[in-house]
Write a protein that binds this DNA or RNA. Structure first.
Ligand code: MN
Ligand code: MN
Ligand code: ZN
Ligand code: ZN
Lengths: 147, 147
DNA sequence: ATGAAAAGGCAACATAGTTGCAAAATCTTA
DNA sequence: TAAGATTTTGCAACTATGTTGCCTTTTCAT
């Protein structure tokens, strides 16, 4: 692992936190690191496990909550009732989320992906219903698992 | 409340349970009743509350689980990580679900509706991803709250 | 370096969901 | 309709998940 590259990542992480008015702490850096070095989404449990015994459970909760509020990560609803979190594109960092992409959950490896290029379709609703936000979650077999 | 109508409902409930190879018990009848007399979906908590102190929590869990397995009800994923349950159309009762409709969660009254006539759109996925099932949940203002 | 402010750790609590087992209810069939 | 076999229920105990208050530690601005 080249020192230079690691340095860069750490710098980017610190910058992102500062830009979001979050003080740069060890747990926030660590958890953000987990998201950056991973293509898919992470469940709370994953994070707790990957972060090791190093951090208190409560800290993980509070960190994720802060990240969601600041638009660093967003939540992905799934059928099995376990919220997953994934990094937002930069544009979200403003303060409110404007993700309009589809999510994909692999039924084999259970990984969850943001399909950033697949926008959520318009849904024609019956008279009287007024849409504000559309969530689309596709379940199936992912790239890697497809044999 | 006319005796005749109540009788009919009870008969229908018993018939449905029998058709699904479920023995007709008080808790199952009661919970099925709750679904039938209500247009929207119910969360676990709702059911526990509406059924009164009469049944054990565990019984509610097991009843809902049985109903899902038999295709009597289906689950609806929501952003707030609380599974909701709603009656399936008759065709589901076979054993596996084939609901392809959109769900709607009202941000005001928090009610959840099955939009049975709004079918889930086809989603064009990137190369390599293979869809098996699509969930669409629309959040917004419902018929009753609009105004 | 120093003090104010923010975040973390701990403990205690609340809620949600699971499991094994014995008692009770339901179903079967004679 | 009266057993007996089978399911289902309730209870207790347990794990998992999430929240809150309070004090200590860390971070940040000066
Ligand atoms: Mn996403
Ligand atoms: Mn539905
Ligand atoms: Zn996969
Ligand atoms: Zn409403």
């Amino acid at each position: 692992m080249p020192k230079q590259a690691t340095q860069d990542i750490e710098t980017r992480i610190a910058a992102l936190l500062k830009r979001c008015d979050l003080s740069v702490t060890e747990s926030r850096r660590k958890i953000l690191h987990l998201f950056l070095e991973q293509p898919g989404a992470l469940a709370h449990g994953d994070i707790e496990r990957k972060a090791g015994e190093k951090f208190d459970r409560v800290t993980v909760y509070r960190t994720l909550q802060a990240f969601v509020e600041k638009g660093i990560i967003h939540t992905i609803p799934t059928a099995d009732n376990s919220i997953r979190y994934a990094l937002c594109k930069d544009e979200c960092s403003g303060g409110h989320h404007h993700d309009h992409h589809v999510h994909f959950v692999c039924s084999q490896c259970d990984n969850t992906y943001c399909l950033d290029d697949v926008v959520t379709p318009d849904i024609k609703l019956p008279k009287g219903y007024q849409a504000e936000h559309v969530e689309v979650v596709v379940e199936g077999v992912c790239k890697n698992c497809k044999g």
